[in-house]
């Protein structure tokens, strides 16, 4: 969500439900990312999607899942694992991209089945109540 003058409001755009589900399911190790961009340098697909997978790491770390939804990277990642092998902080970017594919599927699956598996029933309910 962007406010006036094109400023991205990090607190309003923070997707608490997906962020908590992501942390719960995949752990916090990916947050050790220090944005050194080694992963971008070694990723064979980063010329197609600039900043892949560094930016996805950053956006996931900040809980900005709406921004990730605009990106192709979770969908085109081949899981060649080059980034994870080279990551100096062992933040495992390839795993994050795979996880984001799951999270994004859960978010947009019209049947809601994936959502139940990935995000969990209780969370889904709260989310429905809050009108999300």
């Amino acid at each position: 969500m962007t406010t006036e003058a094109g400023i991205l409001d990090l607190s309003k755009s923070f997707d608490e439900e997906l962020y908590n589900a992501f942390i719960k399911r995949y752990g916090v190790d990916f947050k050790a990312c220090m944005q050194c961009a080694t992963c971008v340098s070694v990723c064979p697909l980063s010329d197609i999607v600039p900043g892949m997978p560094r930016l996805d790491m950053l956006l996931a770390g900040l809980g900005l899942f709406d921004e990730i939804a605009k990106r192709l990277s979770p969908w085109i990642c081949d899981q060649c694992m080059e980034c994870s092998r080279h990551c100096p902080r062992k933040a495992n970017p390839a795993k994050v991209l795979a996880a984001l594919r799951e999270i994004m599927t859960a978010k947009y699956d019209p049947t809601g089945i994936t959502r139940r598996f990935i995000i969990g029933r209780a969370k889904a309910k709260t989310s429905k109540e809050s009108g999300k």
């Binding site: 094109g6 400023i7 991205l8 409001d9």
Partner: peptide, 16 residues
């Protein structure tokens, strides 16, 4: 709080 996130390349704000 307003700032530019230089990694994201965008102006950002946080309510606190």
């Amino acid at each position: 709080v307003y700032a530019e996130d230089t990694i994201l390349g965008r102006k950002v704000s946080v309510r606190a």
